[in-house]
């Protein structure tokens, strides 16, 4: 009985066929509109940085204008941007290096060794990422002010390590889990110690993963705003510098945009060069 109710295949009606032919174009249109939406602020920022003051604040936004480099020249001549750059580079490189050195061994053990509390330890590390930043910021602020770590590179690096190490451990754990465990088992057969298996067998194979995590850690540190804002005063990182610009010169949009573009340059370079590696990191390892 049931089989009878199933309809025999029929040619599709014209309406359905027209709908199916149109689908790819609707789909394409939606995807490109979304791409435009993602790209537009960045595009607008770049054009602003190439506009004269009159064009930048004209009531009728100008899509066609004569580009000028003056904004970049005056920003670069100013020297402040270089200082922000240098501060951010020192902090981000320091924080990246430290969090890798400390995080990779932990990640390896969490991925490979079964021991009491493994899952709890993993959850604890990830939970440091969930902590609202103010809960950590207030003690950091008080302790930094009283110990002299306030407004130092070391202080900022430590604070950034506290923020990014959980992601380093989490992602590296994923990379180690991807390796077949036969690798170490073979090494143990040959009489290797646990350390040797880790250093000489696993670490070299995960170098691409380590590079991806390093890029991501650097990016997170470079973009970090709240801790850099509160825990330093003279040492301003890129986002803090940009924020203070916005406060001081409300209307010099051209120069402001030029400095923003310069500060974004390393980020954009990373995205273009390391797109694939970043996807895994930015989705926190959910996508391999």
């Amino acid at each position: 009985m049931k089989a009878d109710r199933r309809q025999p295949l029929q040619p599709l009606s014209t309406r359905v066929r027209a709908g199916r032919a149109l689908m790819p174009w609707i789909r394409r249109a939606v995807l490109w509109i979304f791409a435009l939406w993602c790209l537009f602020p960045i595009y607008w920022l770049v054009t602003m940085s190439l506009k004269r003051q009159v064009d930048a604040i004209s009531r009728k936004p100008k899509f066609i204008f004569e580009p000028i480099w003056d904004n970049y020249l005056s920003v670069l001549a100013n020297g402040e941007v270089w200082q922000y750059f240098q501060n951010s580079a020192i902090v981000a490189l320091g924080a990246t290096a430290l969090s890798l050195i400390l995080g990779i061994p932990t990640a390896y053990v969490l991925a490979r060794y079964r021991f009491t509390g493994n899952a709890d330890f993993g959850f604890w590390i990830l939970s440091t990422r969930m902590t609202p930043p103010v809960a950590m910021l207030i003690p950091f602020f008080v302790v930094y002010v009283q110990t002299g770590l306030f407004d130092t590179y070391i202080g900022l690096i430590l604070a950034h390590v506290a923020i990014i190490i959980s992601i380093v451990v989490w992602l590296m754990k994923g990379f180690f889990e991807d390796l077949p465990s036969e690798m170490e088992e073979a090494a143990f057969m040959d009489g290797a110690t646990h350390f040797q298996a880790f250093f000489h067998i696993c670490l070299p194979v995960t170098l691409p993963g380590i590079a991806a995590v390093a890029i991501l850690a650097f990016l997170f540190s470079w973009n970090e705003f709240l801790f850099s804002l509160v825990l330093a005063d003279r040492i301003q990182t890129v986002p803090v510098g940009l924020y203070s610009f916005v406060g001081y010169q409300q209307i010099a949009w051209g120069e402001l945009s030029a400095s923003a573009v310069i500060m974004l340059a390393p980020v954009l370079a990373f995205v273009f060069v390391f797109q694939r590696q970043l996807v895994r990191g930015l989705t926190l390892g959910a996508i391999k």
């Binding site: 790209l39 973009n223 500060m263 974004l264 930015l282």
Partner: peptide, 12 residues
């Protein structure tokens, strides 16, 4: 292009 908003410095 879809990756850009995620990676870009939020303040900027």
């Amino acid at each position: 292009v879809y990756l850009l908003p995620l990676a870009i410095t939020p303040v900027a």
